[in-house]
């Protein structure tokens, strides 16, 4: 029986070049591929994986049926979401709000087929001055929208600059506003790292965004002036290169991709061992767990942060120093926040 680490490496091998129109030949055996199908499903790459094997004997394996189901459902889900995106943009504009769509369709549209990458929710960014109005509209209707009040959480660039560099892309009858390619790649990288790098699919997105960047792509805009953040972007792209084979030759991040912090690749592979949501976010309310000492200890242990997320959340540098201080720092910050909110929880429970 293969260990978790080996399976993560197999997952990375199975995803090498998978975003390309013509993916390279699978470098792992059929048996190895079948073994990691649960990892592929959990990592959100079912459809891409299905495309890779659909003309091979691997389709005879009963386990591969789940990949086909994934491809089918991604296709249907995406068709539904496309309708919603067009509708939401129309409704926002009727209120004088101009949103920007990030992630989801904004990156999935670059894949070769519609059903290859699940759109997920509709991530919309609006200006802070429009936020309450936009929220009011969304509260009155059932859309799967994640509304962002500006982008300051993910990005240090002024929102006006992001709007100025944004682009309108046709989706059905709607002109959907997207970030410029440079800004979007940066946001994808930041989001991937802030999430703890556990979603292999998000790294495929980064690889795709890098390889499909338009002519005249301005790396200066993409990386920005903040050196620490620029290095984070370079490290995320470096991970896409190191783990998935993204082509970075001739780019300003090439050198960084070849010299990633020693802890980074093992940390990401460790995250990929368990691709389910349950493995990356606590599954029991701390307040509930406190009723039982054993559960409380377990809940506290479950909240120990991974090194990638801890470094990003505390604005740390991606260098070769140990990550323990960042992990401990974030952990204590969260616990302090929980204790501060304790009276609020008791009030709600009453």
């Amino acid at each position: 029986m293969r260990g978790d680490k080996e399976r993560s490496l197999l997952l990375a091998a199975a995803l090498r070049g998978i975003w390309r129109d013509d993916p390279p030949r699978l470098e792992i055996s059929d048996a190895e591929f079948i073994e990691i199908i649960p990892l592929l499903l959990g990592s959100g790459v079912a459809a891409l994986s299905w495309r890779r094997i659909r003309n091979t004997s691997l389709t005879n394996s009963p386990a591969s049926a789940d990949l086909l189901d994934g491809y089918r459902f991604y296709s249907l889900h995406n068709a539904l979401i496309e309708n919603q995106i067009a509708e939401v943009f129309a409704r926002f504009r009727a209120l004088g709000i101009e949103p920007i769509l990030i992630k989801g369709w904004a990156i999935a549209r670059l894949y070769a087929e519609k059903g290859l990458r699940l759109y997920g929710d509709i991530d919309l960014v609006v200006r802070p001055s429009d936020y309450e109005t936009a929220l009011g509209l969304l509260n009155s209707r059932k859309y799967g929208v994640d509304l962002h009040c500006g982008l300051s959480k993910f990005d240090a660039h002024p929102l006006d600059d992001l709007y100025a560099r944004s682009q309108l892309i046709k989706l059905k009858d709607a002109d959907v506003r997207l970030l410029g390619a440079e800004d979007h790649l940066r946001v994808l990288c930041e989001h991937f790292l802030r999430d703890g790098a556990w979603q292999a699919r998000a790294l495929c997105d980064i690889a795709l965004a890098v390889e499909s960047r338009p002519e005249g792509f301005d790396w200066g805009i993409c990386l920005g002036e903040n050196k620490r953040r620029a290095d984070r972007v370079a490290c995320a792209i470096g991970l896409a290169h190191r783990l998935l084979g993204a082509r970075v030759a001739g780019t300003p991040v090439e050198a960084r991709a070849a010299d990633l912090p020693q802890w980074l690749v093992p940390a990401v592979l460790k995250q990929w061992r368990n691709p389910s949501v349950a493995d990356h976010y606590p599954q029991e309310l701390m307040i509930n767990a406190m009723s039982n000492p054993l559960r409380a200890v377990k809940a506290m242990l479950n909240r120990w942060p991974d090194p990638v997320r801890a470094t990003v959340m505390l604005e740390g540098e991606f260098n070769n120093l140990p990550r323990l201080p960042f992990q401990a720092g974030l952990y204590l910050w969260r616990m302090a926040d929980f204790l501060k909110r304790l009276p609020e929880f008791f009030e709600k429970a009453r």
Partner: peptide
């Protein structure tokens, strides 16, 4: 008829941006 597959389990996640 097709049923919601395991593949959709990772569609949305705790940790998603929220209001």
């Amino acid at each position: 008829s097709i049923l919601a597959p395991k593949a959709l389990a990772s569609a949305t996640s705790c940790g998603s941006p929220c209001t």
